[in-house]
């Protein structure tokens, strides 16, 4: 044995009195337990990307309402003489950016001077002389509206369908799942385009097209979770106590399934934003003068060579929203992960 023995220390009298601790105290000394949601919130706060995205997204939402109001111009008001003006922001024009300089016939000139424009357009103007600042924020508002409504409908249908299918199981589940299997077999793109074609173009048409099969993803994850939880003890206990089906679903299953619903929705929203923009870009979206980020990008693209700013602002905003949502979604998924692992 080479076990090291320290010198046996001299100790003050009374050191060797026996003391009693009860086990409860021992429990208390160990790490305090935190609830699942507290824990999740703690983790999402630690995720800088997600937190930053949340703030950024909040700002974008606020601006989408505030922007059209604080701009002196209506989103659809045309001032033909002010067409295709590059952005000009007073205060930073000396920095060499956003100074109203654009190219005309291959040369760089201050178009505001040239066209005798006294006022400033922060994001410039489009081909019809409309203020891009108010148009972009208004478009953001519309895009977000479409995405949120579509995501909400997806969520509603998906949760109900998946919940019922998983909860009742058996024949009902079999039948409902066959339908979902066929629906998911149809490419989303095809469904969306076909539905858009038969409806009057507009916000409603886009929302319907996006949700017509969009809910299947949500229904699948909800069904999976319900199947997992419904046979667990607390649910069985509630059932033996005579709780009704709807009570069991809402009071007992829902809270446990909430995590996946939130995460799934966080990924549905950017996907809806994308599809709306996509449809608008190929000409199946909103009709003029209504604008969404997608139609603005489409308009801007036509003038990319001469007035790139018309494309730049909506494109940047769209990208920012998409990035923010993906980061928030990732963050939420990581934060809620322990429950999703199975």
């Amino acid at each position: 044995m080479t076990q090291k023995f320290d010198e046996i220390p001299e100790l003050p009298k009374g050191s060797f009195e026996r003391i009693t601790l009860d086990a409860k105290q021992a429990e208390r000394i160990t790490k305090p337990s935190v609830s699942f949601w507290q824990d999740a919130w703690y983790r999402i706060r630690k995720n800088k990307g997600a937190l930053f995205s949340l703030i950024l997204f909040g700002l974008i939402v606020i601006m989408s309402f505030l922007g059209p109001v604080i701009s002196p111009y209506e989103p659809n008001a045309q001032t033909i003489t002010h067409a295709n003006l590059p952005p000009k922001v007073p205060g930073i024009e000396n920095l060499g950016i956003l100074n109203g300089v654009g190219t005309l016939g291959g040369e760089k000139v201050d178009l505001y001077e040239l066209k005798n424009v006294e006022v400033n357009y922060w994001f410039g103007t489009d081909g019809l002389g409309r203020d891009m600042f108010s148009r972009v924020w208004k478009g953001t508002q519309v895009s977000l509206f479409i995405a949120f409504v579509a995501a909400a409908i997806d969520m509603l249908i998906g949760v109900i369908y998946g919940g019922v299918s998983g909860y009742f199981g058996g024949r009902v589940d079999d039948f409902m799942q066959r339908i979902v299997e066929i629906l998911t077999g149809i490419p989303n793109l095809v469904v969306v385009i076909l539905f858009i074609l038969i409806m009057d173009p507009g916000i409603l048409a886009i929302i319907i097209a996006l949700t017509i099969t969009g809910w299947t993803g949500m229904s699948r994850v909800v069904r999976g979770q319900v199947l997992k939880y419904k046979s667990q003890e607390f649910v069985l206990a509630a059932r033996t106590l005579g709780a009704s089906d709807s009570r069991i679903i809402w009071k007992h299953l829902m809270p446990n399934v909430l995590g996946v619903i939130i995460i799934n929705t966080m990924f549905t929203i950017p996907s809806a934003i994308f599809f709306e923009a996509f449809l608008s870009f190929i000409g199946l979206g909103l009709q003029a003068p209504d604008a969404s980020l997608g139609t603005l990008i489409n308009d801007g693209y036509a003038l990319i060579q001469f007035a790139p700013h018309i494309l730049a602002f909506p494109a940047i905003l769209l990208s920012l929203i998409m990035i923010a949502f993906n980061l928030i979604g990732d963050g939420l998924r990581d934060a809620l992960d322990p429950k999703m692992k199975d």
């Binding site: 923009a277 870009f281 494109a315 990208s319 998409m322 990732d330």
Partner: peptide, 16 residues
């Protein structure tokens, strides 16, 4: 993240 987020038509316009 950027690649997932930026729609292909925005990216295509930029490239072009």
């Amino acid at each position: 993240i950027v690649g997932i987020s930026i729609p292909s038509f925005v990216f295509a316009s930029l490239l072009q």
